[in-house]
Design a binder for these strands. Structure first.
Lengths: 253, 253
DNA sequence: TAGTGGTCTAGACCACGAA
DNA sequence: TCGTGGTCTAGACCACTAG
């Protein structure tokens, strides 16, 4: 990374800076390597720290950098592919399911979820908290809403620890047949609780996957899963595997 | 929206500000309504404009606000559901396909695409530019890569306008049977050309959907589609329709 | 031309992690 | 304790839109 001067340009400085840094990352840095700190980088490029940060923020959004307070800025590995839906049934808790039950309560769901579940607005449902780990690091936090109606009464194990109870609910759920599922993906920002689970700061960009599971003509469960947008590439369909390399979206115009 | 003072809090001001604004949007503003300008808002909340902007940026990221330079900040409508994959075959150009061919060239694809297409790194392929419009506004810009090999030779219409040629390529593609498809979704930022097509500034957050179309055992086409992350909720699966209301991800902890 | 959001600056202090 | 990224300020000017 040279000590290149930023000459006058019609495009914003931070944008130009971003492309310069992108090229540098491609050619001169290895994954995991630590970049100079923000004050030094800003000085080196002759811009204010805020401007430099604007460029770094975008690069982090694109999954090229990872920044940690108190530590520094490092070059991020390519995003990992995370299978969200495959051809085989993935009723919650199925086979190679990487989800880990964390906790369980009974509560009134958000109105949006209640609508999807087709329950009355103030009906209580099972609320399971689960975490997904991939390649050794947390990639997603989920809230799974399961109506108490169709499932057998679970009050017997109400006293059990949240996690054990969560697993029990999932087991019951698996007894039902799965007719189909329905997914939506949108951009969001991590709530404080999700952020903690994902080892990020609140407000970090996440991909919110809302899934409705259908069984016997009704909605048997609704899952709201938030995936780390910086480290994850969500995969759908047949061959979830093959690696698409870095940065499909990083070239300048 | 009151003239509430921001009292001392352990959480960042912009975060608190965001929740205050979110509540105000829910209770006191109608879709399309214009907010006071940033300088007034900042003064009203007793913060610097940069801090106010940090809150507005997050709200825009979450699809709650829409900001346009020279115009103002307005309350955004709920995100629209955009069907990305349904049960029926959606070979490019099929039935209710909302894609509009814009242009067509022959060029060497990015190495990542070449790898997915299983072509040699420097092989030229058809590159189609398409746009997707939903509810009257542009929601996605796509680059469709189609190897020249399997399709009939199209040099005959090379002279035709780009758009006409693009449609011809799609027609040829439809003749092949579709064995399956493979999708990945990740967060990106809009390149300058895509941004223009999407009526956004460069760097705007987008959901990048990479699709591989399989036919006769090989990859017949690769599509890289960038959807506006602020206005779109990507839907997959059976019932693409049903509306999940606003803000699955906006409550404070 | 007036008003809006977008960019940029040069500081300051804070919260966190590691030594 | 020190160095890092995270937050915040109070300005300035620019680019764009609309009247």
């Amino acid at each position: 990374m040279g000590t290149t001067q930023l000459e006058a340009a019609p495009e914003p400085k931070y944008w130009h800076l971003k492309t310069v840094l992108t090229d540098a990352l491609d050619s001169e840095f290895a994954v995991g390597e630590i970049l100079p700190n923000e004050r030094d980088l800003a000085a080196r490029f002759g811009v204010a720290r805020a401007t430099l940060r604007q460029a770094l923020e975008q690069l982090e959004l694109e999954g090229r950098l990872q920044r940690r307070r108190g530590v520094g800025t490092t070059v991020a590995p390519p995003r990992m592919g995370v299978a969200v839906a495959s051809n085989d049934r993935d009723w919650p808790g199925g086979s190679a399911d990487a989800w880990q039950a964390v906790d369980s309560t009974v509560d009134v769901p958000p109105s949006a979820v209640a609508a999807a579940l087709e329950t009355a607005p103030d009906t209580e449902v099972n609320v399971l908290r689960r975490t997904r780990v991939s390649h050794g690091q947390p990639v997603a936090a989920e809230l799974l809403y399961v109506p108490v109606g169709p499932a057998p009464d679970l009050t017997a194990i109400d006293a059990a620890s949240g996690a054990a109870r969560a697993r029990a609910v999932v087991r019951e759920l698996q007894r039902l047949g799965l007719d189909g599922e329905d997914r939506a993906v949108e951009l969001g920002s991590a709530r404080a609780d999700d952020a903690k689970e994902l080892d990020r700061l609140p407000g970090a960009p996440v991909l919110v996957v809302t899934t409705r599971y259908f069984s016997r003509g009704t909605t048997a469960a609704v899952s709201v899963a938030t995936y780390r947008a910086d480290t994850c590439r969500l995969t759908f369909g047949d061959t979830a595997g093959v690696e698409i390399h870095h940065a499909p979206q990083t070239r300048a115009s």
